[in-house]
């Protein structure tokens, strides 16, 4: 089958149907930026974008994604040319060990798009109005991404800065 990842086409042969999208990225394609923290959709470290929407790549089978546009952390930016969110995470120290970080950043990219589309969250006062991205909204919408080093306040600072830019 063929997969489109970060704008490149990958031909994958003899794919075990049990292979999660995450394990395909990490174990077959060498794209280890997406992290495995629980393999059960509980931590968010594996978050990638599929057709622009954030998903836990450990909870979806690779064989389901032929024809999808998959974006991983490697597709957002490089160390030499960082995506604005990646740069903001560096500036605000929105990480420590760095293991949840790719998932946090991919999740933030997807989350900001959800807000632009007017999606409400649990803490949105009036679901009929366009949501205002205050800190409570950022925290609520990012709560699927655990950071055990607990860089949470710094991550919120980074996302707020990019959202307001």
């Amino acid at each position: 089958m063929q997969l489109s990842i970060n704008g490149e086409t990958y031909a994958v042969e003899e794919l075990d149907v049990r292979t999660s999208l995450l394990d395909l990225l990490r174990e077959r394609l060498g794209l280890t930026g997406s992290k495995k923290g629980c393999d059960h959709g509980q931590c968010g470290a594996c978050t990638v974008l599929v057709n622009g929407r954030r998903i836990n790549s450990c909870l979806t089978l690779a064989v389901m994604h032929e024809g999808d546009e998959i974006t991983t952390i490697e597709g957002l930016g490089t160390p030499e040319a960082l995506h604005p969110l990646q740069a903001a995470f560096v500036k605000h120290d929105g990480y420590q060990c760095g293991y949840c970080t790719p998932g946090q950043i991919c999740s933030a990219v997807g989350m900001l798009d959800e807000v632009r589309r007017g999606w409400a969250s649990h803490v949105t006062d009036d679901v009929a109005d366009a949501p205002q991205l205050d800190d409570a909204e950022i925290r609520e919408r990012m709560s699927g991404n655990i950071c055990r080093c607990s860089a949470y306040p710094n991550i919120v600072d980074a996302i707020r800065e990019v959202a307001q830019a």
């Binding site: 794209l31 957002l76 490089t78 160390p79 560096v90 120290d93 990480y95 950043i105």
Partner: peptide, 16 residues
């Protein structure tokens, strides 16, 4: 100062 390993970490290029 920013972490010198920061760009690698945020780009998914730090190797665990």
């Amino acid at each position: 100062l920013n972490r010198i390993d920061g760009p690698l970490k945020v780009a998914g290029k730090a190797t665990y």
